[in-house]
Design a binder for these strands. Structure first.
Lengths: 332, 332
DNA sequence: CTGAAAGCGCTTACAG
DNA sequence: CTGAAAGCGCTTACAG
């Protein structure tokens, strides 16, 4: 393992100068800097992050802006993942400060973000709500490492998140494999909740549309789905309908149908919640395709650590998490 | 963060003495040692692993004994995981030496293991073939940290591995959800390959037996399954049979059936291989329930690191990995 | 059995 | 723009 001292000896400069060049200091003659950086590259020098963090008494502070959504599970798991990364790297002086704002008040998130970048902060992890505004803040603070979480902004910002669209496609595929011939699935659509719903639905529809014998009825759109549910079912629940798909209120709908019609259905959903878990255990839902919010949070934290402490440059502009298929047996 | 020096000051001893007590040295008066350890516990002292590893010029060496099985994917992925852990912690002086032996020659593994424990080695990760013999070696070397991988020995040895039995159960459940009414699944059993096959089968059968209308025909056992396949199919392939399940040679069987009978089947399998991938892409297999060998290897390496560098005592005697359900869409 | 001291590979005031 | 020096929290010969 080559170290700074080796480089210093070869070039006949002090260890301090080498350190300065490698850390991108301004107070160094450009030619010396270049020479050092070049030799370091040639020799394959990798800074020992252990020594750096031990020597530097400064902590590195990261703010993580996450969202309180109606689905508590989602927020809690992301938070748990972030905290677990923080704990793992705390001996390096790595801090993650978690700030939760409501999904309904995106301007609050922006406000807090603007406040944070004026603090002593080296990294920002954010589930961005007002994408353009967040990007502006990023561009005004080029020294802060930004990572988006869950919601992508664009290729210029490193991203960790799931592929909701694909999750929708997978749910569709499982349903296609499960439905018996000539059975239909009634698809109910309603307004977006801004994170996952619309993407799940798009994915589901895209996969369904590839089937020669598309078993779909709908999508039937309603702005107030739960209010209109009775009327919609009245109109569309023919005998052929053996399944329902929706990306919002699915568990409520399934419960309602069980109560109202009491016929066995083959339900495949997206996303996880307490209700979803119960319905799967009761065999009222066969499968659900979910994200891995804990892993998302953990990885976002870990990637941030690696950028901050190891100058890691990730080849990919983003890390897309795999979806997970949950059936009843998975829950034991 | 409380450090050794703090303890030294309070107890009026040198930092060296504190270090000795905390590292379990023998050259220290028992009372002093106790006093120090007690105070450390009281103050919640946690050794800074970064400083330790930097100060200790000694590397920590781990040997990982893995198995070359017929399924190359399995071995490669475990190895990739181990290497990724090694790379992540190499700045601590953490080395993993991977030793691959053939599944058919368990005594070679034992031989190599016995040689390894006489080297400068702090940790052993092993997919144990001769369980009792491996345990003996472990008991003769109490200073070496042992971790079993993939195959469990018993509660006394920390274990990282999948739950093959559960994977079998999950495969059965998916199949139950997928098969149409009155359809049957023909189950073919053959000799064990010593790691996963038998457990997959046991899990599959256990889940099937819970069904009121158990759709199973078999299990039909044959010592030379591929030789006897034609006869077995001749005898059992009634019109009701819409699926086949086997834990060995499933992909070969599916290919043969496609060629011989050319009827659409609903196949759910266990495990991953190149052939399996192709069959899923061709829609000849609907789903397979697989392990995560990369994650297994990585976690075994990471756990070993944490035991060696952070004195971590894991509450659980084992870390069981989740099974993963793969459908066609998952592969894109 | 105990302690003073050197050192791991870095960072960073401080002085020039 | 450059370097000598102190120090991060530990470990470990060495001397006693």
């Amino acid at each position: 393992m080559i170290k700074q001292e080796d480089i210093a000896k070869i070039l006949n400069v002090s260890r301090t100068t080498v350190a300065r060049a490698l850390n991108g200091s301004e107070n160094i003659k450009p030619e010396t800097k270049e020479k050092i950086i070049e030799l370091a590259k040639e020799l394959g020098y990798k800074k020992n992050p252990i020594s750096s963090s031990l020597a530097s008494k400064k902590k590195k502070n990261v703010y993580a802006f996450i969202i309180k959504s109606k689905n508590k599970y989602y927020t809690e798991e992301i938070e748990r993942g972030l905290k677990s990364a923080e704990k793992e790297f705390k001996f390096y002086g790595f801090n993650i400060n978690i700030i939760k704002t409501d999904i309904e008040t995106p301007e609050k998130q922006l406000e807090q973000l603007k406040a944070a970048v004026n603090e002593d902060v080296q990294g920002i992890i954010i589930i961005p709500l007002l994408k353009e505004k967040v990007k502006e803040v990023r561009n005004q603070n080029p020294n802060i490492v930004f990572t988006t979480l869950d919601i992508n902004i664009d290729q210029s910002i490193f991203h960790v998140g799931p592929n909701y669209f694909k999750s929708g496609r997978i749910a569709a595929e499982i349903l296609i494999n499960t439905l018996e011939e000539k059975s239909k699935v009634l698809v109910l659509d309603t307004v977006d909740d801004r994170i996952s719903s619309k993407l799940y639905m798009d994915g589901f529809l895209s996969r369904m549309s590839e089937e020669k014998n598309n078993p779909m009825i709908g999508p039937v759109y309603s702005e107030h789905l739960m209010n209109d549910l009775d009327d919609i079912l009245e109109k569309h629940m023919t005998k052929e309908v053996k399944s329902i798909y929706a990306t919002r209120f699915l568990t409520d709908i399934v419960k309602y149908i069980g109560y109202r019609y009491n016929i066995p259905m083959k339900i495949v959903g997206n996303g996880m919640s307490d209700d979803m878990k119960i319905l799967i255990l009761e065999k009222k839902v066969l499968a659900t395709v979910v994200e891995q919010p804990y892993e998302e949070g953990y990885l976002a934290g870990k990637f941030m650590f690696e950028k901050l402490y190891k100058d890691m440059n990730f080849k990919e502009a983003s890390h897309i998490m795999e979806s997970k298929i949950i059936v009843r047996e998975s829950l034991f």
